[in-house]
Write a protein that binds this DNA or RNA. Structure first.
Lengths: 224, 224
DNA sequence: CCACAATTCAAACGAACGTTTGAATTAACA
DNA sequence: TGTTAATTCAAACGTTCGTTTGAATTGTGG
């Protein structure tokens, strides 16, 4: 009897929570605000999700599980068609970026992306645990695939570059309003193809940069 | 009579708040936790900072104002010594990165950096306003300087790349524990020279990547 | 239609929050 | 030292929070 295809109360709670969490933040959103926005009773949250933490987890899981599954399917497809031959770096990056950008096309996807960018910097233990559960395995898979296209990189160098890559990607996926304001309306974050090409070109160039180059000339050095 | 070189109570509050905000987050930290950690009376916060928001602002201002001033001084020095001739891209990036990495050497700097990464994704109006106050001007200065070294880039392309750059930098400056865990201890974020060289090389390669390249072959395309 | 489980509901719980108050204490300056 | 302003302090304010409770309601299978 557990959970059917869609339980109306549960889904209304998830939708309302997602919206309010995105706008005001998780801590700043009370369960009373969520339930009244969803048009359900206050006690429903604890009945269906046990606690506020449970609601938060479900909000993230609902979107991230399908998202990461799609990423893994794309990567699987790449590795199968390649069948031992080399995979292009850009194609791997695409498998990571495209599902996230596609998600952002729908209005619900947009509001979730704002929320997603926050999860990485939220200090709550519950969310950090969830992050590791959700991204631990998939990150290793993508890192390995990227590393295979860049065999001249040491493991340490590769990890650093993947770290930088994630920074650029997270910041881009999450931070839709900031680039618009910063560029004075010049950059359009809803142009998925444009964002996709630019982000992937930028990251690919960074990943491919020749390793172990020393910093050159003109450095500011130690001052004062 | 206003504020002297260092007011003991004020400084103890700022130190305690910085530490607790970094560990547990701003919303999750109560003023009672701050004041008892600082060993001062609860009402001191409202007396010295008017409100919790005022305390938060002061915590950020205390570190970010000197940090951004140092960045601007380094950029000024570069532009003066160059005197019309071209400035190396890496040197500009260094002027942005180095002060932040140096700050992270001290224990207090370390804890603040964790906090700093959070400000970008916090939804509070007060913090977002502060962010624009603090980073609006300096970002324009650095973007312009970077753009001058990459004259083949359109304004739009430049803005996007600066956006990606900021993502990589923010994620790196803020997220010290994550890279260590992700790399299984292989990467050492306290090796300032290493981080500096790797981050700058990565970002410089991304910024320099030839513009308007179309995505090639193997793309996953539309599925399902 | 009845028994029974699943769900919803209004109400209340105790705890913790940011802020305010007014008296007590300390420091500054004549 | 006496006067006055600056600061600290204990206590309380009113509000809001997440959670719990027990009765009312709805849905379901026999």
């Amino acid at each position: 009897m557990e959970r059917q295809a869609l339980h109306p109360t549960k889904d209304r709670l998830l939708d309302a929570a997602e919206e309010l969490f995105s706008d005001r933040g998780i801590d700043a959103t009370s369960l009373r605000a969520v339930t009244s926005a969803a048009g359900v009773n206050l006690a429903s949250v604890n009945y269906h999700f046990e606690s506020k933490d449970g609601l938060v987890r479900s909000v993230f899981l609902r979107r991230l599980e399908p998202l990461n599954n799609e990423r893994l399917e794309l990567l699987d497809a790449l590795e199968i068609t390649a069948a031992g031959t080399a995979i292009e770096l850009e194609a791997i990056l695409d498998a990571w970026v495209l599902p996230a950008l596609r998600m952002g096309q729908s209005p619900e996807g947009k509001r979730f992306k704002r929320l997603l960018g926050r999860i990485y910097s939220e200090p709550g233990d519950s969310l950090q645990t969830l992050l590791r559960e959700l991204f631990g395995e998939i990150l290793q898979r993508f890192s390995a695939a990227i590393g295979r296209t860049l065999p001249e990189l040491s493991a340490e160098e590769l990890m650093w570059r993947v770290h930088f890559m994630l920074g650029a990607m997270i910041h881009t996926v999450a931070d839709q309003p900031s680039i618009r304001a910063f560029s004075g309306g010049l950059c359009d974050p809803s142009d998925i193809e444009g964002v996709r090409r630019r982000l992937i070109d930028f990251v690919a160039a960074g990943l491919r940069s020749p390793p172990a180059k020393k910093t050159t000339g003109q450095s500011p050095g130690t001052r004062k």
